[in-house]
Structure formats: structure tokens, C-alpha cells
Design a protein around this nucleic acid. Sequence first.
DNA 1: CCTTACTCTTAATCTACCTTAAGGGTATTT
DNA 2: AAATACCCTTAAGGTAGATTAAGAGTAAGG
Lengths: 193, 193
Amino acid sequence: MIIEKLFSNFDNYLPLNSAEKQDLAGRVIQRKIKRKQFILQENDICKHYTFVAEGCFKKFQVDDKGTEHNLQFAAEGDWLMEIVSFYLEKPSRVYIEAIEPSVIFQISKPDLYHLYDSNPKFDRNFRVIIENRLVETENRVLQAISSTAEERYLAFIKQYPHLLSRLPNTQIASYLGITPEFLSKVRKDLLKK
Amino acid sequence: MIIEKLFSNFDNYLPLNSAEKQDLAGRVIQRKIKRKQFILQENDICKHYTFVAEGCFKKFQVDDKGTEHNLQFAAEGDWLMEIVSFYLEKPSRVYIEAIEPSVIFQISKPDLYHLYDSNPKFDRNFRVIIENRLVETENRVLQAISSTAEERYLAFIKQYPHLLSRLPNTQIASYLGITPEFLSKVRKDLLKK
DNA sequence: CCTTACTCTTAATCTACCTTAAGGGTATTT
DNA sequence: AAATACCCTTAAGGTAGATTAAGAGTAAGG
């Protein structure tokens, strides 16, 4: 069963016993998402915290010129949401779009809070998930302010080897904050070395 | 009493009653820190979550060339720590240094976990503090990959007006990911407009 | 109060990265 | 199977921001 992927995600933190698994299963919704389908659009309220069981998503913001900037990729085993919109119920500033056919599990805020209240293990687990996300994001800030595009590309390859073959270079360039043309040059220069 | 500043920080989230205040007060250590004093150095384990009651700190990383890169400023009312080092007890990659004479309250991990266990309100409050930090950090990533130095400087002024007059431009430049010389040029160009 | 250590600015030169444009290639969709 | 949309690369010219150096101004600490 595909929901096992959700359960086993918690093995990275405090693993769930069968009662807790049942508790969780009763509060998530399973959805099949097509390629290019959005699960969140700008100005919508983000109603769910999403776990990716299969496939891959991108979370991005669009600037005044219409250019997309990728903030996060989420593949099997990753969680994602628009944190401001979810917690403060403000209109989302970002889009979340499937870049592959995907299967996800979504939990609403009331259901999440119910889990928090019912069992401190969920509290702890979700705290750690968010902390991990903060670590990743801080690392990215550091790289952005201190590394060249080539260094950032090499770091990306190292950190997300499973994504490299699944993403077009245009998407990676958008994540790294450079143009696809310049990424092409960076890759060429790396081959020469 | 200066510890009131710590208590009233929680008024932004779920305010504490007097029993909870006492609980918290019994678990934090108050310290006076001099300008240029470090409360965390590279390779040390980050043992405390720090609340700044007075003064200001910078959290930064040093690269191979010896250049400092500022990841965060924390003034009155802000929390800071090295999250990986604190939770995973790994050697810190960053330094935390006072840039003004300061007064802080520190809580150790055992004490923090005790608060979490004793009362879910602390759980909730610290979750929100971390979520807010994540929001700030994600905004910074977006700016780094999509904005010019001038735009980032303007955003900094807007978001941290209370810090502007207290920080030398060299520190702001390090935060923005540019050289002090270029910040000087940006400021000059802005005056012309 | 004096000294020493920072800090800010300017300007010239240099480099990383962007923009525009164009051609060929590879998936997706019909 | 054809059509269409998307993707990758190359190259020329342009701009944002780095580097180096130097002089003047300001703050910190003894």
C-alpha cells in the first residue's frame, strides 16, 4: 500500500506504532495529481500540508516580469506547503505545481492540530520536519550570498542527485538563480576540467 | 525587571500566565555579554537557545578565504541559535558574536524539552517562533535568487529599520551578499533618485 | 585625550552573469 | 505520425557587482 510510504517517513524521526498509523491514516486525504496540475495557486489559501509519496513538485514565485523562481523541489518522501498562507491563512504568494504524475497525502490544519493535541509524538515529529526544512533553507541563503553559480550547481548535484536526471536544466537554473543559458556555459566549463 | 522582556515576547503568540512565567524563569540563565564577545564559536556545540533582551548579535559563517557572511542579526526580542548544532549536537559551522553590549536569556536543550513536556503551550509557542524564522529565511532565498543588490538593500531598510542606524555598512553588505564598496555605490545611486 | 583600529567613499580595472537571437534537438500531445 | 511545444546550446555584446588601492572620517579603548 502506498500509504506505507507516509508511515515509513516517520521512521526518520520517532516511528509510529499501529494505533498512531491508524490515527494518521484517518486524517489524511490521498490524491492523484497529473503533470502540470497545480495544488496551490497564487492568492489561494494553502489549506493542506502535503506529503509526496510518488512524483515530484516545484514550489515557485512569479515576479513582475513574469519570471518563475523556484524555491523548493519536493519528491518522494518530502513535505511541502506555503507556510505563511497555511498558518496565518493569508493569500499564497507561491504556486505549487506537479512536474511529474504524482501521488500525495494531504492533511488539513484542523486535522494536523488534532494530531498535535492527541499525541505529543506528532508534535515532535512535525517540529523536526520543519527544523530540517529551516536547515536546508539557511544553507541555501549561505550559498546564495557566498558562492558562485558553479559552486551552487555542484552543491545542488551533490545534495539532490536523485533530482538531477528528472529535472530539465531550465528548472535547475531557476532554482539556482541563474539563466538557463548561463547554466549551459557552467556545465560546459565543468566538462573541460 | 529585564526578564519581563522575555515574558512579554510570548504575548506575540500564546501569552504566559504567572505559573508559566515562573516555570520559564526557573529554566533560563541571564547573562551580560560585552561587545565583540562570542556566545558561540565554530566547532563548539550550541548548548543554548538564546533570547536577546538588550543589545544585538550577528550570526555568521567564515569561508575558505576568511570572509565573513552574515546569516542573521538578532536584536531585542529576537531568538537565535545554530539549529543543527543545537538539535543534533554537531559542531557548529557558525559564530555568534555580540555587536553591542547585551543582556540575554539562555535555555539549554534539557530545560527546553522539560518545558515542552510540562505544558503544550511552550511547544506551540516555540513552534511558531521557528516557523517565523523559516518564513524570514525563505523570503531571503527568494530575494537572493530574484532581486538586485539595490532591491535587497531597500527591502532590508524596510524590514529592519531599527537595525539600520546601529549597524556599520560593512555588516549590512555582508548580510546582503555584496562588498562594502558596492553598497557604497548603491547608496549613492539611491540618493540621486 | 590620544592613538589605533575601523569605516566610508571614490575610481579604475576586471569578471561573473545577463540579454538577445538563432538553430537544432527532444519530448508531449493530437 | 505529425505537429507543437519545450529544451539545450552557442555566441556577441552589455551590465551588475568584485577587486584593488588610496585617502579622509569616525569611533573605541587605554
